[in-house]
Design a protein around this nucleic acid. Structure first.
Lengths: 109, 109
DNA sequence: TCCCATAGTTCGGAATATCGGAACTATTGA
DNA sequence: TCAATAGTTCCGATATTCCGAACTATGGGA
């Protein structure tokens, strides 16, 4: 396994963040990773809402979030652990992520 | 000409806003419409940065912004006038648009 | 060591979206 | 009525997304 690419904080682009979170499934995954505080394996997202997400699609979504700079992924044994980079990103783009997650929360209600 | 579709404020979806603004060209157009205070004809956006935008693409971008609920478009004689719906959207999703435009401003600098 | 189970990734083709040139429509003014 | 201007629609080329199937990587037995 080659190491996974994670952009440096200064290379994180707003368009990549918006694109990543413009998909409600990815937004839900990111909300869960950020909100739980604890690290989550990919398999934790096999079901989002009432939708079953195929493994290959899930892998793709996780990759989009990672390459946008929103999460950090590390292999731990047989599973991948996904951390939020929320606080880092918030330093670079203050208020952006909380506004986006807040908007989804408002719309979902 | 059939009248243009504009979503009601309560039908505006966060994913549509993020998708619309995840394109830097559309974000630049929206920034210009919102920031100028004054209404802008579509032809005002024929050049964004140093890129020339073909008319058909521009028409498409304006449509995406309109259908996301970000702008309001009215024909005035031979030209279309584009208003920002920024303050409306800000009521529904407080802080979202300023965080997004702020992020682009930070990244652009 | 070999084999199996688990957790994700990659491949590839179908469905979908985007881009932009060319043709078209709508409006105004001469 | 005609020409000019401002946008829209059409459509083919290109790019992206989706997901099943095959593959890879790791750890835990026997």
């Amino acid at each position: 396994m080659r190491p996974l690419f994670h952009p440096a904080l200064e290379d994180v682009r707003p368009e990549a963040i918006l694109h990543a979170l413009s998909d409600p499934i990815r937004a839900a995954i990111f909300t869960q990773i950020s909100g739980m505080g604890c690290v989550q394996a990919c398999s934790a997202f096999a079901v989002v809402g009432d939708r079953v997400i195929p493994k290959s699609s899930l892998s793709h979504h996780i990759k989009v979030l990672r390459e946008a700079g929103l999460i950090r992924c590390e292999r731990h044994g047989v599973e991948m652990r996904n951390h939020s980079r929320c606080s880092e990103v918030d330093q670079r783009f203050p208020g952006l992520l909380s506004a986006i997650l807040g908007a989804y929360a408002l719309a979902g209600a």
